[in-house]
Design a protein around this nucleic acid. Structure first.
Lengths: 213, 213
DNA sequence: CGAAAATTTGACCGAATGGACAAACGTTAC
DNA sequence: GTAACGTTTGTCCATTCGGTCAAATTTTCG
């Protein structure tokens, strides 16, 4: 049973666990951990509460499983930032990928934001481990580009934070954005406006003064 | 009793209500609305639960009162953005004031973020009213500057959103920022770093190409 | 098929939660 | 002093929540 290495899952178990995680993502993202109830998740997953608890023994376990998967997806765009590519192209692509994630995975963004907002009580180890390491690594890559005079000098950490903040804003503060700008009419309208703006904001600044080294 | 215009408050009532709102800000910001309990708030305010309920009849009422006050404070920096001032100076000051708010009132920032994240169920009217109007007004001011060729052309709405996102990030995602950068040693170190970075990010871009109109 | 294993459900439990209430306690004004 | 009013508290209640359990049902496999 406690065979961590080989969980020996049935086909039904794999299917049902996915259903539960999908439903839990929806509910946790909307109400936060404490605000979400097992009953809500069970109903969203189309099963009874005891049945859900047969697949995940506790509410915490669902959340934990969700967060573990989330972080990988979440950090993927930054992982792709490539040392050997052209700096401007790389950063432009990174911003776009991050904005695409906010558009395509807003629930994941909100789930993450909820957790961090409340002090990351359940995922602090991941933040201080995996996430921190990756940020350090990529900040070094960016700093390398700066020292080589390929992009303007600035603080790579605050640059990364700002890209996170601005892109995730469109997922996390979606209702506010929509309240101010009105409902998104054209399918790609809102997204392309934001993409253009952010590209201009970040990329123009990084191109500037490069030659001056 | 239901005299909305003149609540006729005792001195004790004014004091105790402040105590409660201060405690509630702390607790709501940390745990969100549903995650916070009246008992927690009462304990933080140094009184018993029934005593607290004597001053605020429901949990919702506390939250509502808090949010109403919050929005004024929260929008104050944007309100100060002055039509007749120098555009660059005005925007630079705005960014700094907003970052100061994130530093000095992180609980207010998190309370607001919590509420928006969950779809703004309790403050939607304020968002669609007061906030939306103010943003429209100030976006027009910024657009006016652009049309006069005094700052570079860009989308004023996304500019405002980006300033919000980046500055509030330092309050809302504080634990993440601290996990990555380490504890803030010098009293003004972290803040000044962020201020310098954001000023460069936003202001350099707005200065660029101005003469080209 | 039929037995063993996996899955599903209804009923239940203890703890926590938002809130009600009446009685007790303080304060103030006459 | 004392009556009126404002404040505080202990006790209680209905509901909700996370989680258990045994029994019933379905699936798997020889």
């Amino acid at each position: 049973m406690t065979d961590g290495a080989r969980p020996t899952r049935t086909r039904i178990q794999r299917v049902k666990r996915e259903l539960i995680l999908e439903a839990a993502l929806e509910v946790f993202a909307m109400h936060g951990f404490r605000g979400a109830t097992i009953d809500q998740i069970a109903e969203a997953a189309g099963m009874s509460k005891p049945n859900l608890l047969y697949y995940f023994r506790t509410k915490d376990l669902i959340h934990q499983t969700l967060m573990q998967r989330l972080l990988d997806t979440w950090l993927a765009p930054l992982r792709e930032l490539d040392d050997v590519g052209d700096p401007i192209t790389e950063l432009r692509s990174y911003i776009r990928r991050k904005l695409e994630m906010a558009r395509d995975y807003p629930r994941e963004s909100r789930l993450f934001a909820n957790e961090i907002l409340q002090g990351a009580p359940r995922i602090m180890p991941m933040i201080e481990g995996e996430l921190k390491e990756l940020v350090h690594e990529k900040a070094q890559v960016i700093r390398g580009w700066m020292q080589a005079g390929r992009i303007a000098r600035t603080d790579p950490y605050h640059l990364i934070f700002s890209i996170w903040a601005t892109t995730q804003h469109y997922a996390d503060f979606d209702v506010q954005v929509r309240a101010v700008l009105g409902p998104d009419r054209g399918g790609e309208g809102r997204f392309e406006d934001a993409a253009r703006f952010l590209e201009q904001l970040f990329i123009e600044g990084l191109k500037a003064k490069v030659t001056r080294g």
